[in-house]
Design a protein around this nucleic acid. Structure first.
Lengths: 204, 204
DNA sequence: CCTTGCTTGTGAATGTGAACGCAAGCACGA
DNA sequence: TCGTGCTTGCGTTCACATTCACAAGCAAGG
């Protein structure tokens, strides 16, 4: 990896490339050109080449990108070559759906703990995890967990985030419909499905 | 609304503004300045002013933006001033969570139909809707539905989308982990939670 | 060993969005 | 009625991202 500035937009696209190369591997393809890949992903060939070239020269001129080794390279860049543990906060319907979503495992993520504040949920089992009491969130400090997924109501989110900030959490995937205030050392990605849907009628 | 080009990024942010102004209304605020709003949303004041000014002069100099009327304006711009019906395809865990997510209603969305291909799910009730057979998807043509939410496995998505394209669907919120090929008249927003989480370890 | 065809990698140019700074102008008080 | 303070609206500037176009270079075949 060289030391020039890599665009944020490029980083956002890297998981998409990783997913594509992983799929190509299961199809037993051993190489793919930028134009073929671009068609699959609905984007332009030069953009793919530029994105990948920020991290080095992965491809072979005249041939394309070797599927297996490029997948490994991207995994390394995104630090997904080791299992990343994540804590899920919120064991409602959405939380339960997330806990059992196989897509996380395919990126090497491991939902290693689930917390909730509802006594009727604490102690129940979701997937392989037993739901724990949110009051004991600080037990994650000693469990090598640095990612959190928030699937709780917006008005409950900020206090939970303040707690997570004291627990070595470095990244948060926030599914609550609100902005979170966090120290700069924590990276937050917020997704509200209703908001995403909210843009569509404008284009109709 | 004037006829100059409005940035896509601005459109993406409009639902966020709408949500903020709606919340301010429930707090009985009658106006807010761009700097106060910026702090709440974690963004810069000039950006808010620029975004809103694309659609006209909503604010009052020296005072700020009137909460109630600005909310109405944005609702009109996004065409959320009328109830927008949406069809949900996929009645699995994620689909069920979406069907009962109250956030959609707060933007004026109405999940008006649910489809699935699993015979054990067809006929069961989720929220107010009875799950229908995906084979009968074309019945939505006569039901004034122009939005679709896809919560199905990636390998099943493309055929469903082809079917939706023949049913007057104009916008799709795709929660499947794949790129969808659609005619240009259809706007697609794809969200894969695993992919979003996939960027976070890079920044740790 | 050389030639041909194809695809990558990359600087330069173009396009797009964000930030800045200030003039315009409303509200309020004297 | 006029002056003051505050905040919007917007032209300009700047930064970032995408696209373009072409040289570099590998592979395969004669």
């Amino acid at each position: 990896m060289n030391y020039q500035k890599i665009p944020d937009e490029t980083i956002k696209r890297m998981p998409m490339y990783l997913r594509a190369f992983s799929m190509l591997k299961t199809e037993n393809r051993d190489s793919i050109s930028s134009s073929q890949l671009a068609e699959r992903l609905g984007m332009s060939p030069p953009q793919i080449r530029k994105d990948l070239s920020y991290f080095g020269a992965f491809g072979t001129r005249g041939v394309g990108y070797p599927v297996a080794s490029t997948a490994d390279q991207i995994r390394g860049i995104l630090k997904l070559d080791v299992t990343q543990k994540a804590v899920l906060v919120g064991a409602g319907r959405l939380g339960a759906a997330i806990a059992e979503y196989p897509g996380f495992a395919s990126f090497g993520f491991d939902i290693a703990a689930i917390f909730d504040n509802d006594p009727s949920k604490i102690g129940t089992k979701i997937g392989k995890n037993v739901v724990e009491d949110i009051a004991k969130i600080d037990t994650i400090k000693s469990r090598d967990i640095h990612l959190a997924i928030l699937a709780i109501p917006a008005d409950a989110a900020q206090p939970v985030v303040d707690g997570l900030a004291d627990c070595c959490i470095k990244g948060i995937l926030n599914l609550s419909a609100c902005h979170l205030a966090v120290p700069k050392s924590i990276k937050v990605v917020t997704i509200d499905l209703a908001m995403e849907l909210g843009t569509l009628p404008y284009y109709m």
